[in-house]
Amino acid sequence: MLASDDDILGQAEAWRRDGKGVAVATVVETWGSAPRPTGSHLVIDQDGHFLGSVSGGCVEGEVVTEALDVIADGKSRVLEFGVADETAWRVGLSCGGRIRVYVERVD
């Protein structure tokens, strides 16, 4: 709710108006000690530039990668991240929390 949210969604709009492919990622659910609250945004452009955060930096790389797919195929998806565990997750949250992130393209 701080002013930075403003810049994040404002940046998404500006990128789109510049003709770039853009995706918005939103934390839609958290369990346990999650670093960023529900409603936090990360916005990504087609070149992999991003602004904002959905975790403390733990899973942003993975979200950006998935966002590039969303920008390419236009299909929204829900990603889930949990405790770092190489058998279950490629990346994880070392804090022990779990989060769900909704990723959608701006059309």
Binding site: D6, L9, G10, A12, E13, R16, R105, V106, D107
Partner: peptide, 11 residues
């Protein structure tokens, strides 16, 4: 998300 919705939210 449609661009017009995003713009309306920002406005």
């Amino acid at each position: 998300m449609r661009l017009d919705l995003l713009a309306e939210l920002n406005r």
